[in-house]
Amino acid sequence: MKLMVSFSRKKVSEPIIARAVMDTGVLINVERARIEPTEGDVLIDVPDESARTVCMKMRELGATVSVLRDAIIRDEDECVDCGACISVCPQEAFSFDSDWKLSLDQPRCVLCGRCIQACPHGALSLQK
């Protein structure tokens, strides 16, 4: 399961990911991180059964955590199945099915946003 962990330096002073791994014993996979001087967001992937434990630990450490499901929204009316998104995705989340219809494998997405810009039809957006 993918979790978006957001924190600010004011509330979180210690290395939060490392602390969560040590305290929970759960192996956390960092998929994308944006660290600014005063704040940061980290997208992590954890085993489904451990998600609750990790969530609670992160919150205890002062971060806000949201569960990501269907992070990229595809507007089926706007999409024409051209495939402009396929090769720009670093995670290979997009592909054609046998009928040349575009399919999106949500769990692979790491929210880099490249496909949103590459879509000529404005059919892709980020879930708020």
Partner: peptide
Amino acid sequence: KTSSLSSYRK
């Protein structure tokens, strides 16, 4: 990797 810009389905 390749991407088409035209839609083969259409």
